[in-house]
């Protein structure tokens, strides 16, 4: 039951985080921005609208929104806030595979749509995901205590230090990629050729789009929580809330201060993340006292 409460809390708060970040970003850019509660209204409105899909799509396109939401909810249930013991089933490695499942189904659905734009988005998403995956795994291992297994509990009680800071730095870059933020992607774009994550959802509408958007919000909050765990004291839910406010603020600043990277400069950013993560583990392996 506590795990269900955790999932419920994350699901309820996820649109709020999205709304707050959007508002903050708009204010930083001296625009009024939408109300903080707008994502809730958007979801409610979309939920009542009918779904529209291209002719002749397969059942995969129908399943994809549900799979995406299910993956996000499993992610939310796997986070170690309520159940901090090692008994938690989903570990760091399994999480990488779980996210891979959601991405695989969504990319297949995009290719099923018969549109050049969705195919392009699927191609880009899978390309960058293949670079994100190793960095993500190693960054999380860099934050963990080596030799204590791969459960999320192994992230607990590890002294922060330089190795921890590098692991967090790597994870922050990946966080930007995984939550479709500038400088890697842009959630606000209306220009199909620059879309990555939005492009995957291009053909969805109505309640199906609502499911996909909700999944994206939940996944975003889960990634923020995971980043908070890598920071000092992040295992405490209240400290995590403070860290999320700080992280959401810094992401909005990054989104304002930087322009979107050219598509083929993104790999360099992701490889930087990988190198930071590898350095972090290297420091722990060498036992550098920092």
């Amino acid at each position: 039951m506590p795990a269900a409460m955790q999932v419920l809390a994350i699901v309820v708060l996820a649109p709020l985080v999205q709304g707050a970040m959007k508002r903050l970003r708009a204010r930083l850019q001296e625009k009024p921005g939408p109300p903080i509660l707008q994502p809730y209204r958007d979801l409610a409105k979309l939920w009542t609208k009918e779904a529209v899909l291209p002719e002749g799509v397969s059942i995969i396109a129908l399943c994809a929104p549900g799979v995406s939401l299910g993956v996000a909810l499993t992610f939310a249930a796997a986070l170690p806030f309520v159940d901090r013991s090692a008994g938690s089933i989903v570990d760091i490695v399994a999480l990488a595979f779980l996210l891979g499942l959601g991405r695989f189904v969504l990319a297949l659905a995009a290719l099923d749509m018969r549109s050049a734009f969705t195919g392009m988005a699927a191609s880009r998403e899978m390309t960058f995901a293949s670079l994100v995956e190793p960095a993500l795994l190693i960054a999380l291992l860099g934050g963990a205590a080596l030799g204590r297994g791969t459960s999320f509990a192994s992230l607990h009680g590890v002294p922060f230090g330089l190795a921890g800071a590098l692991a967090f730095g790597a994870f922050f870059l990946l966080l930007l990629a995984e939550t479709a933020r500038v400088p890697i992607d842009n959630q606000e774009t209306h220009y199909e050729l620059t879309m990555i994550h939005e492009g995957l959802l291009l053909e969805y509408a109505g309640w199906q789009l609502a499911m996909l958007q909700a999944a994206a919000y939940v996944r975003q909050l889960c990634f923020l929580l995971l980043a908070a765990i890598l920071l000092p004291g992040g295992f405490n839910p209240w400290a995590a809330v403070v860290w999320i406010v700080v992280l959401a603020g810094s992401i909005s600043v990054v989104e304002t201060a930087f322009a979107k990277l050219r598509l083929f400069e993104i790999p360099q950013l992701l490889v930087t993340a990988l190198l930071l993560a590898v350095t972090s583990i290297g420091l722990r392996l060498l036992g550098v006292p920092v």
Binding site: V52, P54, E55, I59, L62, G70, L101, G102, F117, Q208
Partner: peptide
């Protein structure tokens, strides 16, 4: 949960219907 979500999405599509239109 992903399987349950997929089943729910398919059932919902059957109940509420999905309009067909050309891709963008």
């Amino acid at each position: 949960l992903p399987l349950a979500g997929a089943a729910y999405a398919v059932v919902l599509a059957a109940q509420r219907g999905v309009r067909k239109a050309p891709a963008w």
